[in-house]
Amino acid sequence: MIGRNILVFVIISIIINTSNATTYMYILAQEWVGSVCKVEPSCPFMGHYDGQRWNLHGLWPNTQLTSSCGSIQYCRTDPYDSSKIYQKTKDLLDVVWNGLYSDTETFRGYEWEKHGTCYPGEVSQNYFFQTAGGLAQKYNYYEILAKAGIYPDNTRQLFENDIRNAFAQVLGSNVKITFSCFKDQVTGKYLLGQLKICFDESLQIRTCNCKLNDEEIDLEKQLNYSQYQAQPLVSCGSVFYYPEL
């Protein structure tokens, strides 16, 4: 009987520990430069941007808890130091990750300290940026949209299914993405601004199914809106545009 009780205790402990185990979802967020530079008239920090890709905003580790998205930020003290990043990684970043409306190095440092420090395993700065840059190269949002015949066009009206179907052709029909827009304060048009795809802990594509309640949405806006962003991102509405550069 004692042996059975011990076995039951062990099984229960395993179940509890498993249910409380932290799992991660990584969010790869990229911004469309044409939209950013429409709502933020001066885009001086273009770096080596070639116009054939979206600009990397960040790779964000999020814990997946039952009640919320479990957004995690500033997890450990490890100040950004560009000398810790290999030249090969820097060359990649110069193509995929520019500041646009803020100093590029400052922006990358901000993203590292806010999100990179939350990458599990306390990875190095070079590993984080190499991983983020590699994913941005592999999942080129400009090319994914182009394969579906969607190119920057100031006059073409787009609808939600246009974007979802374009990414479904590449990621799979069961994978959901999320995207949002800037609202042009002059024309009132919604401009496709940021798009996110998500990965599991093995960096395999998964659905972005993390949903916030209203209170958490307000908190997320407060936490994530900063000088390293143009105007606040909003829902794209029923019709939106993918503006030219």
Rank of each mutant, 00 (worst) to 15 (best):
M1T: 10
N5P: 00
I6R: 13
V10I: 15
I14R: 01
I16Y: 05
T18C: 12
S19H: 10
S19W: 11
N20Q: 11
Y24E: 00
M25H: 08
M25S: 06
Y26Q: 02
I27R: 05
L28Q: 03
Q30L: 03
S35V: 05
V36K: 03
C37M: 09
K38W: 07
V39C: 01
E40C: 14
E40S: 15
P41C: 03
S42F: 10
C43P: 08
C43W: 13
C43T: 05
P44T: 12
P44S: 09
P44I: 11
M46Y: 06
G51A: 03
R53Q: 14
N55H: 03
W60C: 01
W60T: 07
N62G: 01
N62C: 05
T63D: 08
S67Y: 14
S71W: 12
S71Q: 12
I72Q: 11
Y74F: 15
C75G: 08
T77C: 02
K84P: 00
K84L: 15
Q87C: 00
T89N: 02
T89F: 04
D94C: 05
V95A: 06
V96E: 06
V96Y: 02
V96P: 07
W97M: 13
G99M: 04
S102R: 13
F107V: 09
F107R: 09
G109H: 06
Y110V: 00
W112E: 04
Y119G: 00
Y119I: 10
Y119Q: 06
N126G: 07
N126I: 08
F128W: 12
T131K: 15
G134Q: 10
G134I: 08
G134S: 13
G134A: 05
G134W: 07
K138I: 06
Y139Q: 04
Y141C: 06
Y142G: 09
L145R: 03
K147T: 11
G149P: 13
Y151C: 06
D153S: 14
Q157Y: 03
F159V: 11
E160G: 04
N161C: 02
I163R: 01
N165V: 00
A166C: 06
F167S: 05
A168P: 01
L171V: 02
L171W: 04
G172S: 09
S173R: 09
V175S: 01
S180K: 13
D184V: 12
D184C: 07
Q185R: 14
T187W: 08
Y190D: 04
L192F: 15
L195E: 11
I197S: 07
L203P: 09
Q204I: 04
Q204R: 10
R206T: 15
R206P: 00
R206E: 12
T207A: 02
K211D: 08
E216Q: 15
L219I: 12
L219Y: 09
K221T: 09
S226K: 10
Y228G: 01
Y228Q: 08
P232R: 12
L233H: 14
V234G: 01
V234K: 09
C236Q: 02
G237P: 02
S238T: 14
V239C: 04
Y242I: 13
P243M: 04
E244R: 13
L245Y: 06
